[in-house]
Write a protein that binds this DNA or RNA. Structure first.
Lengths: 203, 203
DNA sequence: TTTATTATTGACATTTTTATCAATAGAGCC
DNA sequence: GGCTCTATTGATAAAAATGTCAATAATAAA
């Protein structure tokens, strides 16, 4: 054929678990960098450095790769959120900080948008258990009633998701420093906790 | 061919504008109901009740259909947001109400997720002009400095987007009535305005 | 009515994406 | 070494999605 020896590269043979991990990691990189539309069979295989057929051998179909990735990322997110309830007794800045960190981890915005779009928002029920734990911790360790704790969590999640999804874009749009949207949101949260007087002012 | 007369349906001939409108409306219905992955050429054509080739005749490619839809929906959203500055002099509940309404209109969540994912968040610059108008109105008519007005807008947008995207899911998840997340968010906003003392508590 | 224009369409072609399959080749075990 | 198991792969098929084109038929204008 050619003068250049193609130098037959030895195959890498992984355990099934390692192979799946390799594939999912590749898929996650693609999702974070380019969004779900980049999760084509050929793209994932290329990113993982293996043949298309190998991906199918371990997952059966590209859809199952996507499902598995979604579940993995949701599980990771839940784990990080759960870490919030480990921080301290008070629902103060430290906790909020950790929560916002959890939602700003690379790819969470993409994951959220992906979930929203795939209609698989039902998968959010995976979060239920975690949320209940956090609520329990809060009302255990503070003076808040469970209802108050629940509201605080909901407010935190809404804010953190909003910041995670649109914080960067908003800061840029308004010509503010990068973390400004986040700081603002955390200030809102702190103020919320600091002024329980008007607690039920909403409905 | 067959005993059954296929009854040759007369063609509908639209003006180019009406044809484009018909197609975009169909595409929007699909987007809202099923997400962007449903915006296939065949699907859009079927929903619009015309042949695939007709879609291509008016838009050239399915990508241009998607781009046009995106632009249309962003423009609509901007118009609704702009309406906020028409409401009243004070940045109080009425304004927030309108803003939240704008973000909870059917499909906005899908649009936002879509924008986030397509990387075309750059298109968010379309919003810049509108935002500047709102900021100007606010600092004109109230005692707020421009910086304060900007922060209020940013907070409102983050909250409204968060509620628009995850409000329903969150309320369900926590076993609360449908509008609870929204009420909570609006309460946060009101509290923010009511306690300017800790205004700069964030950074 | 006749003609010109062009929106509309079905049939077909092209491209893209996914899936199948038989053969190859690591790795542990005898 | 020889053997088994199976992860891996290239070639190929199948399916899905997009786009092309020439013919058809509404509609307005002459």
């Amino acid at each position: 054929m050619s003068i250049i020896k193609t130098g037959k590269v030895p195959r890498v043979r992984r355990s099934p678990e390692a192979a799946r991990e390799n594939i999912l990691a590749a898929a996650e990189r693609l999702l974070v960098a380019q969004g779900p539309q980049a999760l084509k069979l050929a793209d994932v295989a290329a990113e993982a450095g293996i043949a298309n057929a190998s991906v199918l051998h371990h997952f059966g179909s590209i859809d199952e790769v996507q499902t598995a990735l979604m579940e993995r990322m949701v599980a990771d997110l839940v784990a990080r959120i759960l870490a919030v309830s480990e921080v301290g007794a008070e629902p103060s800045p430290a906790g909020a900080q950790t929560l916002f960190d959890a939602f700003e981890a690379p790819g969470v915005a993409r994951l959220a948008a992906w979930l929203e779009m795939t209609g698989e928002a039902k998968r959010m029920t995976m979060v239920r258990g975690a949320v209940q734990k956090v609520v329990a911790r809060l009302s255990e360790r503070t003076l808040m009633t469970p209802a108050e704790a629940e509201d605080l969590i909901m407010a935190s999640v809404v804010l953190a998701m909003g910041v995670g999804l649109f914080g960067r874009a908003l800061s840029t749009l308004m010509g503010k420093p990068a973390g400004h949207t986040r700081d603002l949101a955390m200030a809102l949260l702190v103020k919320h906790v600091a002024h329980p007087s008007s607690w039920r002012g909403g409905d």
